[in-house]
Amino acid sequence: MVSNIDSTTGLLSMALDAAVLRQQAIAQNIANANTPGYQRIGVSFESRLAALADGHGQVRAPSLSELAAYRPRLEVAAPGSAGQAVSLDEEMAQLSQTTLHHQALLKALDKHMALISMAVNEGKR
């Protein structure tokens, strides 16, 4: 869901969605770790956000109307193609990375909300 307060909250909530979706994809991979012929699924989000970088290390904030194009997506190997098998240790590493990233995003959203709250309260706490 794209929130429409400003593009930072929109971007953060999409990144949170991506983290949750990625956790679910990892859970799906782990649940099928012993399934013969199973191909792992992933989530693409950050790689598509790279399109916002201007090549000088600066990332342009997307406008609200642009955000929908950057929604996180599931990456499922096409049927018949040789996908990647599940390696349990790799999934566990990605799982803890995803959990930490999710916490960092929540912290960022929390701070951003605190800033907005300060503005709304005219600088008074």
Partner: peptide
């Protein structure tokens, strides 16, 4: 590993509840 994934989902949900 499944239990760990379950616990991760649980802690992510719990952290989200603390938002705000």
């Amino acid at each position: 590993a499944n239990v760990a994934a379950f616990a991760a989902a649980r802690s992510m949900a719990a952290r989200t509840l603390e938002l705000g």
